[in-house]
């Protein structure tokens, strides 16, 4: 599978390079020899049926799992197997599919914790956290306990925390799923405004409307393997992708 001649004269142009990454649990290949690149400023959609390995791949990229094989390069630097807190410090922010805010703390405190990576002084960290909450539209909820937020609020808080790291690469794991259409539109707007600020985004999402509208390119996983990559329209008509989602056409 690994072609030695990756047509790539200047590898540093890619912000993130996933090279032949494999992650196995027991005998199961959760992710198998997946390779793709993300350029600075892109929004890449990562899709696939349930259990395709999307979240596992996220966990490998963000340092929660070390890959069994392959490499991850960020700004040309090999980051495979580095712990999440180091990756957060060099600019990789992520959200979790199952949102778990620090429930006993206020919304502001939740975001301040992330801001501390960039602003070690508490006052500056708080100022920065306020700014982040204003861009994500949570400023009016800043002083309430995080546990009292609605699901939409929690998802916004999750994004706020990742943003407070001032990431260059943001990994979003199903931040739209479960929201009502109005909330979803607000989140999509937010994601697009982040891209305008120069943040590169890798997004996992089940809602095709979201993926198709905002992604520059889409990577499709099925049973841990990459089965397609390209612009959203081509991918949506790719027979392999349709088969993965809908199953074999009866003969």
């Amino acid at each position: 599978m690994s072609e030695p001649a990756i047509s790539d004269p200047a590898p540093s142009e890619h912000l993130l390079q996933v090279e032949g990454v494999t992650k196995t649990f027991g005998g199961l290949h959760a992710v198998f020899q997946v390779s793709f690149q993300i350029n600075s400023g892109e929004i890449i959609g990562l899709i696939g049926p349930n259990g395709a390995g999307k979240t596992t791949l996220f966990n490998v990229i963000s340092g929660y799992y070390a890959p069994n094989a392959g490499h991850i390069r960020f700004n040309g630097q090999d980051i495979s197997g580095k712990p999440p807190y180091k990756l957060a410090a060099i600019g990789i922010g992520r959200t979790f599919q199952v949102v778990k805010p620090f429930a006993g703390l206020t919304v502001l405190e939740n975001v301040v914790i992330a801001s501390l990576v960039r602003y070690p002084k508490r006052r500056q960290a708080e100022e920065h956290a306020w700014k982040v909450l204003e861009t994500t539209g949570l400023a009016d909820r800043a002083t309430v306990q995080a546990s009292s937020l609605t699901l939409a609020g929690r998802k916004r808080l999750e994004v706020s925390k990742a943003l407070a790291l001032e990431p260059t690469l943001l990994l979003l794991d199903e931040v739209v799923a479960g929201l009502n259409p109005t909330e979803a539109d607000r989140t999509i707007e937010l994601i697009l405004s982040l891209r305008r600020q120069g943040i590169t985004i890798l997004i996992v999402e089940h809602i095709m409307r979201v993926i198709m509208n905002i992604s520059d390119r889409v990577v499709v996983l099925n049973f841990g393997q990459k089965i397609a990559e390209g612009n959203p329209r081509d991918v949506a008509t790719n027979p392999g992708v349709i088969q993965a989602y809908l199953g074999e056409a009866p003969q």
Partner: peptide, 23 residues
């Protein structure tokens, strides 16, 4: 001090705290 917030973050969710740069 910020240390108190970091400690509480770890109490609430150790995995999540890691993604925010805490060891």
């Amino acid at each position: 001090a910020p240390f108190g917030l970091k400690v509480k973050a770890i109490r609430e969710d150790e995995q999540g705290a890691m993604s925010l740069g805490l060891n």
